[in-house]
């Protein structure tokens, strides 16, 4: 009875580039940055993470089971795609990013490069 389709095929055809901006939490500690992003409806296969220069882009396509011939009567998630970009700084090590996707929540860990790990700086009082 159901078939895998994106939220709105019409929206996809006419506005292929329009996207929703997912809500995120960004937390920094001594070892690096942890980013959580809400991407409900995005499976692992439809998630794309890209680092280009100093820009990190998260993009995901919503794919939910919609029965054949369904008419939407109320729509809040009205685009089939999420996208958001962040500018990274040079002390973050983009080669060691790790990602987990669990129940539609993406968790990214971006460690700091070794040299950028905290060092206690001694203050000399003259």
């Amino acid at each position: 009875m159901s078939e895998k389709k994106t939220v709105s095929q019409a929206a996809e055809a006419s506005r292929s580039e329009a996207a929703l901006i997912p809500a995120v939490d960004v937390i920094e500690d001594a070892s690096g940055i942890v980013l959580y992003a809400d991407l409900p409806g995005v499976s692992k296969e439809k998630l794309s993470l890209q680092v280009e220069g100093d820009t990190l882009t998260i993009e995901g396509e919503v794919s939910i089971d919609v029965p054949e011939g369904m008419d939407a009567s109320h729509v809040e998630v009205n685009l089939p795609r999420y996208r958001r970009s962040f500018t990274l700084s040079k002390e973050l090590d983009t080669t060691k990013v790790s990602a987990e996707l669990n129940h539609g929540v993406l968790k990214l860990h971006i460690p700091k490069v070794a040299q950028a790990q905290p060092q206690k700086i001694k203050v000399n009082v003259l």
Binding site: V7, Y36, D38, L39, P40, G41, I64, V66, P67, E68, G69, M70, D71, A72, S73, H74, V75, E76, V77, N102, H103, G104, V105
Partner: peptide, 26 residues
């Protein structure tokens, strides 16, 4: 709006409700 975001639709045989509620133990 509010959390979770919802889409509602219908077919001649059923009513379909989608709640976009990520990160919750079902």
């Amino acid at each position: 709006g509010g959390f979770p975001a919802m889409n509602v639709g219908g077919t001649p045989h059923s009513v379909e409700v989608y709640a976009f509620a990520p990160g919750i133990d079902p």
